Amino acid sequence: MPDYALEAAHGGLVAGIDEVGRGPLAGPVVAAAVAFTKPPSELLAALLDDSKKLTARRRKVAFAALMNAPDILIGIGAASVSEIEQINISQACYLAMRRALERLDPQPDLALVDGKHAPRLPCPLKMVIGGDGVSLSIAAASIVAKVTRDRLMERLAVRHAAYGWERNAGYGTAAHFQGLRTQGVTPHHRRAFAPIKNMIAAEAHAA
């Protein structure tokens, strides 16, 4: 379970940063930055873990607790499908992280970032491999980013019902591919990603 040791060891205002949506075939990438202005309560800390380890219901409970908690700063940033195609997915993830961090006021003294590849951020940073299972701030960021992106994909699914985005969040599931075969590619699909690029090329060749 993640704890508050890395944040406490630094002593200043520390933000955890994580992103969600690197792998889907559709939709933006979303990042969150979360900073506790004082150590989280035991009750709140008990709700937090790597978002991938939590059920959808537990994520929603944790998300609500974070959004309503005192003494917490939350910033959310995204990079659009067009930005993903223009600058590639890795750079788009970093862009979303910067945007999330820039929405924190005041800015943190240190950012703890999940992963091993360092983005360019406007503050000192420390990379933490497997950070969403180590740091409470990163775990909180992973939950905020995941729930935010899932809700965005659910809203898109209302207008694009054939792809199952309310269930698969844009990942390449069988239902998603079936929707692509029957309805084709939407403006929300990442045309630079191989499955979508290959489908577009095949359709152009057939025509």
Rank of each mutant, 00 (worst) to 15 (best):
L112W: 01
M153C: 09
D114E: 00
K146L: 10
G16Q: 07
M1N: 01
D18P: 04
M1W: 01
D49L: 02
V113Q: 02
H188T: 04
Y94R: 00
A174T: 06
S142H: 05
A92R: 08
G130R: 03
R167L: 01
I17W: 00
S51K: 03
L13R: 10
I196P: 11
V30G: 12
Y163L: 11
A194P: 04
T182G: 01
L73T: 07
I89S: 11
S90H: 11
F63P: 07
L156I: 09
R159A: 14
P2K: 01
G12L: 07
K38P: 05
P24Y: 11
Q86S: 14
A161Q: 12
R159P: 01
A175Y: 00
D132I: 08
I200M: 15
M97Q: 07
R120K: 13
M97T: 08
Y171V: 04
V29T: 15
A65F: 08
A118M: 07
T182A: 05
T173W: 03
G11R: 01
N198L: 12
K116H: 12
A201I: 00
P39E: 05
A31I: 00
E7P: 03
L13D: 13
V134K: 11
Q107K: 09
A46T: 09
T148Q: 12
R167C: 01
W165F: 11
G16S: 08
L47Y: 04
V147R: 11
R59A: 11
R151N: 15
R58Q: 15
L136M: 06
R149H: 02
A8Y: 08
V158P: 04
T182S: 11
K53E: 09
R98W: 01
A202N: 10
R58G: 03
A8W: 05
R159S: 13
V113S: 02
R99A: 00
G27V: 07
Q107L: 15
A206M: 13
A100K: 02
D18E: 00
E42M: 06
A111Y: 00
G170V: 06
N88A: 08
L48V: 08
S137F: 09
P195G: 08
A46W: 05
E19Y: 12
L25N: 14
P39S: 01
G179K: 02
A65I: 05
M97A: 02
A92T: 00
A33M: 02
V147S: 15
E166Q: 12
P28W: 14
P70F: 14
A69P: 01
L44A: 10
L54Y: 08
H188L: 13
S137A: 15
A5M: 08
D3G: 13
E85Y: 11
S137T: 11
D150H: 06
